[in-house]
Design a protein around this nucleic acid. Structure first.
Length: 578
RNA sequence: GGGCCUGUAGCUCAAUUGGUCAGAGCAGAGCGCUCAUAACGCUUUGGUUGGGGGUUCGAGUCCCUCCGGGCCUACCA
């Protein structure tokens, strides 16, 4: 039994995430977590809401709430949606937790002690009307290069020229529209990542088999131009983790907070501490996952994220942890494997939170249960390149794979048995060559499925699982128990007993993809044996003759053409305000 | 501008990192079955692997070039 630590990129707090966000991190992370638990490994699956930063403040203001109240409310909303999608976090934390505050301040202090923190004076645009410093992209104005009037302070979206906010003509606040902007001097802490560049480079080089997407992005940042740049880790905001030093104000840093990207990954650790507290456990319970001097040396740590998150997970966060261990007294667990994903597009364009384009998690669950989405999204995960959601493809995938291949199989087997033998696993008959061939075919595909799941090859895993389901239909067609029943009822009994057991095995192995449907199958069959079919022959005899079962309700309803058309129309345009 | 990824049958994707690999699923066509959510099974039609050139005994697989799509480019997170 191995110990596996799994983290999903943290969903940001300002609103409900769309399906692209879901399939890029939380969903595949959950798939892996469920699979590893099913294989008997000890798993710690951590996620949390990422709550700090300017967008959270603005979203709260827009909602007319205190930012802390807003975050608490949205955290509850996101947690509920996560449950709806069957996301099996061991803990779904909050980056605003006391644990994260303490740990973030602690790690910053360690980095300072290591000489990896530097105070830098810089000029920032301040908006008196908004009462805040404005991040570059919250300043808009006319692009000096192309004349586009809504250019952002970091880059003109029209001509793609990179800008400095002070380049803009007629700059104004993107928040209030205020034009009385001024440039003020401010001081910030910088993490001297550049000092760790060689360490990070060697560390990346030492990793085996990481996705190209992961390493190429990391390498780009390490070697592009002047190499890895130091990074500001503080901001002039109210909402965030105060920049303090062992509880005392950090000189010159009064009224500042840590940059959200500094504290967000630290929340992976802090959330584990939150978990320990919630479980009534001691610090040792979470430290054995995160400190190699406290038991984490045999932990395998896997992170899941969209490609936009890669730089922070390959560079900044490792730099934080490596730097904090400058004297060898705080060996933090570094990630062992980073599974990164491309983007899921929506029907020819991008999902857009701001434009309300695409399907959001709450809307998805209003339409259909989580399993439908889990299956389609995972079987189309954007692993090698961006992939695309279309209602036609969604309908086809759900109807064919879930309703026809798996759902109908469960239906035909249980209903046939009920009509010929009653709702009891029938006895009699002896397996023959056909059954041996089925077992061999299952064995081959099951091991392939396991290999793909181990390797986090999400789409290949889904394809293999589907192929396993198909074997059931093939067997039934060949065995034809409805024909055998006429002349040799015992033969038919054996065949259908095997089929019932096969369905149970399908429930067990399909559980990582479609946990709810799997549970319904198991409940209908009256089985609570979720053990993985390492011994396939044995697993196919778990349901003994005489055991009662029930015909389950239709596992997956089909999506009709009219319904599909209606949904396509409903989600094409502006999302109604939630 | 720079960097990275990507372009394989109508659609979604595979091809053990140069050696029968040109494949699967869906869609289409035909046949079969009738237990089942008009479901299932079998057979089958589609591709000169974006265009062009090159290396090699041999290239979706390597090189050059052109065309198309996407992402990143460090103060959104």
């Amino acid at each position: 039994m191995a110990r596996i630590l799994i983290t999903s990129a943290l969903p940001y707090i300002n609103g409900i995430k769309h399906l692209g966000n879901l399939v890029g991190s939380q969903l595949p992370a959950d798939l892996y977590a469920r699979y590893m638990r099913a294989r008997g490994h000890e798993v710690m699956f951590i996620c949390a809401t990422d709550e700090h930063g300017t967008p959270a403040e603005l979203a709260a203001a827009k909602a007319g709430e205190e930012v802390s109240a807003y975050c608490a409310r949205m955290h509850a909303v996101q947690a509920e949606l996560a449950r709806g999608f069957g996301l099996s976090f061991d803990h779904f934390g909050r980056s605003s937790s006391p644990q994260n505050r303490d740990l973030t301040q602690h790690l910053a202090a360690r980095l300072a002690k290591a000489g990896l923190i530097e105070q830098v004076s810089e000029s920032q645009v301040y908006s008196p009307a908004d009462g805040r410093f404005l991040p570059d992209r919250y300043i808009t104005g006319t692009c000096p290069a192309c004349g586009y009037e809504n250019a952002r302070g970091d880059q003109c979206e029209n001509c793609t020229k990179q800008l400095d906010p002070t380049d803009l003509i007629n700059p104004r606040s993107a928040i209030s529209g205020a034009t009385d902007l001024e440039v003020r001097a401010t001081r910030h802490l910088f993490l001297r990542q550049s000092a760790l560049r060689a360490r990070l480079d060697a560390w990346i080089d030492s990793q085996q088999g990481w996705p190209v997407l992961t390493t190429s992005i990391a390498k780009k940042w390490l070697h592009d131009g002047d190499g890895l740049q130091d990074r500001g880790i503080t901001r002039d905001l109210d909402w965030g983790i105060p920049v303090q030093f062992d509880g005392a104000p950090w000189e010159g840093m009064e009224d500042k907070v840590f940059y959200v990207w500094f504290d967000a990954p630290i929340e992976y650790i802090a959330a584990t501490a939150e978990w320990a507290e919630a479980q009534g456990l001691s610090d040792a319970a979470w430290r054995r996952w995160w400190r190699t001097d406290a038991g984490a040396d045999d932990v395998r740590y896997v992170q899941f994220m969209g490609k936009d998150n890669v730089p922070f997970h390959t560079l900044s966060f490792p730099a934080t942890l490596i730097g904090a261990n400058f004297d060898g007294t705080e060996p933090w667990k570094l990630v062992d494997y980073i599974k990164s994903f491309n983007y899921l597009n929506y029907d020819g364009g991008q999902f857009s939170t701001s434009q309300g384009r695409g399907v959001f998690m709450d809307q998805a669950l209003e339409i259909l249960p989580g399993d439908y989405w889990r299956w389609w999204l995972l079987s189309h995960a954007p692993e090698s390149s961006d992939s695309e959601f279309t209602w036609e493809n969604f309908q086809a995938g759900v109807n064919k794979d879930l309703a026809d291949v798996l759902g109908n199989l469960v239906s035909r087997v249980t209903k046939f048995c009920r009509s010929k033998f009653g709702e009891t696993v029938p006895e009699g008959g002896a397996p023959g060559a056909r059954e041996a061939a089925l077992r061999a075919a299952l064995e081959g595909r099951l091991r392939a499925y396991e290999r793909h799941m181990e390797a986090m090859e999400v789409r290949k895993s889904a394809a293999e699982l589907r192929a396993l389901w198909v074997l059931g239909n093939e067997y039934l067609q060949e065995a034809a128990p409805w024909a055998a029943f006429k002349n040799d009822p015992a033969q038919a009994a054996m065949q259908i007993r095997l089929a019932l057991n096969l369905i149970r095995v399908y429930a067990v192995i399909s559980q990582p993809f479609i946990p709810d449907a799997a549970a319904r199958i198991m409940a209908a069959l009256g089985s609570g044996d979720w053990s993985w079919p390492d011994d396939l022959a044995g697993a196919l005899e778990v349901l003994p003759p005489g055991q009662g079962f029930m015909v389950p309700d239709v596992l997956f309803a089909k999506i009709g053409d009219e319904q599909r058309a209606e949904w396509a129309a409903r989600f094409s345009g502006q999302r109604a305000e939630a």
